[in-house]
Simulated assay, not measured.
Amino acid sequence: MATINPYLNFQGNTEEAFNFYKSVFGGEFLAVQRFKDTPEAGNLPEQDQEKLMHIALPIGHGTILMATDALESMGQRLIEGNNYNLSIQTESEAEADKLFYGLSKGGKVIVQLEKAFWGDYFGMFTDKFGINWMVNFTPN
């Protein structure tokens, strides 16, 4: 069975926000990945290198709060309504395919579902109702 987690987008202050959330929820970050450590690092301006590509904080009973810095240098622009995604973690690649292609039908694919540089099977889309989704499968 797939699980759904909130995925937030911030305008450059993800680290500040997540340090605040950590002070409230407690716990430790599961992941902290910076843009300087991605294949796109060479295409980004110096001021974006330390921004967060991904951060994850468990906040209780299987729920993980995750986020990224939306970078204008990558053509990303935040407006009210696009500052979050519903992130589905699937149990198999087949389940990822089913949910990705089913939910994205009639919508707009942002990132095609495929193996990502970090090793997961990942894709993003906006459904026909304007809801932003991410589908992810992590192989064992």
Rank of each mutant, 00 (worst) to 15 (best):
T68R: 10
N136T: 09
I4S: 11
K115H: 11
N43G: 08
D120G: 14
V135P: 05
P39G: 09
T138G: 08
K105R: 13
I88S: 07
R34H: 07
I4M: 14
G60P: 03
I79D: 08
E46R: 06
M134V: 06
T14I: 01
D48N: 13
G26E: 11
I79M: 10
E28V: 13
N43A: 14
A17Y: 06
M66S: 10
G102R: 07
I59K: 04
S73Q: 09
Y21K: 05
E15M: 00
P139A: 03
A116G: 02
F129D: 13
Q112T: 11
Y21C: 06
H54I: 11
G62M: 05
W133E: 09
N140A: 15
I4E: 08
K36C: 09
A17W: 04
L65W: 05
S87Y: 03
M53P: 08
T3Y: 12
E40S: 03
Y21A: 04
N5W: 02
N5E: 02
P39Y: 02
A116F: 07
G60I: 02
G75P: 07
E40L: 10
G81T: 02
S104Q: 14
A2H: 09
K51D: 04
L8G: 09
T90M: 06
F125Y: 12
K115S: 06
D97F: 15
L30T: 13
L103M: 14
F20P: 04
E46V: 09
L99Q: 11
T3M: 11
M74W: 05
N13R: 00
P139H: 04
E28W: 09
N83C: 01
S87E: 06
E16P: 01
G106E: 08
G26P: 11
T126A: 09
Q33K: 08
L57M: 05
Y84I: 15
R34P: 08
T68D: 15
I88F: 15
F122K: 03
I131D: 08
L44P: 07
V32H: 07
S23M: 12
E80W: 01
F117Y: 12
E80T: 00
G26C: 13
A31W: 04
G106L: 08
A2L: 10
M1A: 14
I55F: 06
N136M: 11
N83P: 03
L65H: 03
K22E: 11
K22V: 00
F100Q: 09
A56S: 14
A70Y: 14
G26I: 06
M74E: 12
K128L: 00
A116T: 00
F18A: 01
K98L: 12
S73C: 09
V24K: 08
N5A: 07
A116D: 07
F35V: 03
S23H: 10
T68E: 13
G26Q: 10
E72F: 05
D69F: 05
W133G: 08
P6K: 05
G12S: 05
T63L: 15
V135K: 10
K115I: 05
I55T: 09
V24C: 13
G107Y: 01
V24G: 12
L86P: 02
K108G: 07
N83E: 06
E28T: 15
A17G: 04
L113P: 02
T63V: 14
F10W: 05
E46K: 12
R34T: 05
A70H: 12
T38C: 09
F125N: 09
W133H: 04
G42H: 05
N82Q: 02
F29W: 05
E28Q: 15
Q112D: 07
N136H: 08
